[in-house]
């Protein structure tokens, strides 16, 4: 049987997750451009997606990058 405390906790969990979901939208954009800058030093990135999964434990960051080729190192003359 659910007590009032259990119901309150469940409701609170939902509220806290909703609050947290609203936060990362701007952060996603900023992170995306920073990550893209780093990745482009190493590979030709054609597509990049950055997603935040929010749970009560915190944030899980999922980065998906497609690249056509990896850049070669050490072949350009100094």
């Amino acid at each position: 049987m659910f007590t009032i405390a259990d119901m309150g906790s469940k409701r609170l969990e939902k509220v806290l997750i909703k609050d947290k979901t609203e936060e990362p939208k701007k952060l996603e954009e900023i992170l995306k451009s920073d990550i893209l800058n780093v990745l482009q030093d190493y590979m030709d990135v054609s597509n990049l997606t950055v997603n935040f999964n929010v749970s009560l434990d915190g944030y899980k960051l999922c980065i998906n990058a497609d690249a056509k080729r990896v850049k070669s190192f050490g072949i350009l003359p100094r």
Binding site: T3, I4, A5, D6, G8, S9, L12, E13, L16, L56, D57, G58
Partner: peptide
């Protein structure tokens, strides 16, 4: 209220707030 289950427990608050 804690004993009757009518108040969110201290442990749960700590867990929710991490």
């Amino acid at each position: 209220l804690l004993l009757s289950g009518d108040m969110i427990s201290v442990e749960k608050i700590s867990e929710l707030l991490g």
